[in-house]
Amino acid sequence: MTSSHAFRRFAFAYGTAFAVLYVVALKLDLALFTVYPKQSVVLLGTHHSRDVVDPAMSFLAPAMYWYGWTASAALGALVFGLLGAVLPELWTRRIWAGWLWLIPIAAMSACVYLTMPWFRL
């Protein structure tokens, strides 16, 4: 097994796992951290300002979750990527390579579906 083969398996596993985990993080709102840019504060985990202050006042502390969702998915995908890299090539060869592009397309479609509420406002 060469390092180039291991990196190939890592890259393929990471890309597909990230796509799935990103949709999971988005749907379940699993942000590794929450950014409050106005206050220059980063809190570990998912925090909603409306949970601690009146929803009408939440504009004072706009929260950002995209970084946290991306970090959650990246961390999870890293585990799958490393697993893919250490698994014997004989095992990974049985996995259909087409998943590499089919899963991200499905994940992108899921992201569009989860964003549809914006278009109904």
């Binding site: 990196f7 890259a11 990103y22 964003t115 914006w118």
Partner: peptide, 23 residues
């Protein structure tokens, strides 16, 4: 709202695309 929706989709797509770069 539609513009914000399109922008949200953009963020999601960019993240998924970035993860595909190694492959």
């Amino acid at each position: 709202w539609p513009a914000l929706g399109f922008f949200d989709i953009k963020e999601h797509f960019i993240s998924i695309g970035a993860a595909l770069l190694p492959a």
